[in-house]
Each structure stands twice: as C-alpha cells, then as structure tokens.
Simulated scan of single mutants.
Amino acid sequence: MFSDPAPEILSNEFIDSVVVTDTLPLTEHQRFESLTVLPIAPLIARAIHEVFDNGSVTSMFDGAA
C-alpha cells in the first residue's frame, strides 16, 4: 500500500493523521505514528447481514457525509 518513500512523507509533522482500512496488510516498515488502521470486517459483516435479511445495504450509508 505504501511504497517508499510514502511512510516517511506521510509521517511529516504537517500531516495530522492518515486513516486507512485493514484490507491490505502493512509491514512494520510501512507503519508510522500518525497512521490509524480501521477494521473493515464489521462493515462487511453488516452488509452481508443486510443482504441475507432482505435489508438495504444503501441504508448503511444514510446520513453519512
């Protein structure tokens, strides 16, 4: 995900934070202090539940801006 020199550039003091999902693995070399990795599994699980419960996947994003 982060090829060199991305981790060094993104850990710059002028960048407050970088947020990514855990869909791709990151090595220790690719991680830096201001990086936040969010799990995607709960969102995928909810989408699967909505599909099999005849719910609405679109409703998961209602009000998201």
Score class of each variant (00 low, 15 high):
Ala47Phe: 03
Thr36Arg: 06
Glu28Tyr: 04
Gly63Val: 04
Leu35His: 01
Pro39Ser: 05
Ala6Val: 13
Ile15Ser: 09
Phe14Thr: 14
Pro7Glu: 00
Phe14Lys: 11
Asp62Trp: 12
Arg46Thr: 14
Pro25Phe: 12
Ile15Arg: 03
Phe32Glu: 02
Thr21Tyr: 04
Glu28Lys: 03
Glu33Trp: 05
Ile15Thr: 05
Ile40Cys: 09
Ile15Val: 12
Pro42Arg: 15
Leu26Trp: 00
Gly55Tyr: 02
Asn12Pro: 06
Leu26Met: 10
Thr21His: 06
Glu8Ser: 07
Gly55Asn: 07
Ala64Thr: 08
Glu50Trp: 03
Val51His: 06
Glu8Pro: 02
Gly55Thr: 05
His29Thr: 12
Glu8His: 13
Gly63Glu: 08
Phe32Gln: 00
Asn12Phe: 04
Asn12His: 04
Thr23Gly: 08
Ala45Gln: 14
Ala45His: 10
Phe61His: 05
Asp16Tyr: 11
Glu13Cys: 06
Pro25Ser: 06
Thr36Asp: 13
Val20Ile: 09
Ala47Pro: 03
Pro39Phe: 00
Ala47Glu: 09
Ser59Tyr: 07
Phe2Asn: 01
Asn12Leu: 04
Asp4Arg: 15
Val19Lys: 12
Glu28Val: 03
Phe32Ile: 04
His49Ser: 15
Pro5Asp: 07
Phe52Thr: 11
Ile44Gly: 13
Ala47Asn: 02
Asp53Glu: 14
Ala6Cys: 11
Arg46Asn: 09
Ser3Ile: 15
Leu10Gly: 00
Glu8Phe: 11
Ser17Cys: 12
Phe52Ala: 05
Val57Thr: 04
Asn54Gly: 14
Val19Glu: 08
Val20Tyr: 00
Ser34Tyr: 02
Ala65Gly: 15
Leu10Gln: 01
Val19Gly: 06
Ser56Leu: 09
Arg31Gln: 13
Phe61Val: 03
Glu13Gly: 06
Leu43Cys: 13
Glu50Thr: 07
Arg46Ser: 10
Gly63Asp: 09
Ser56Ala: 09
Pro5Ser: 05
Phe2Val: 02
Val57Ala: 08
Leu10His: 01
His49Asn: 13
Glu8Gly: 05
Met1His: 09
Ser59Val: 02
Val57Gln: 02
Ile48Cys: 06
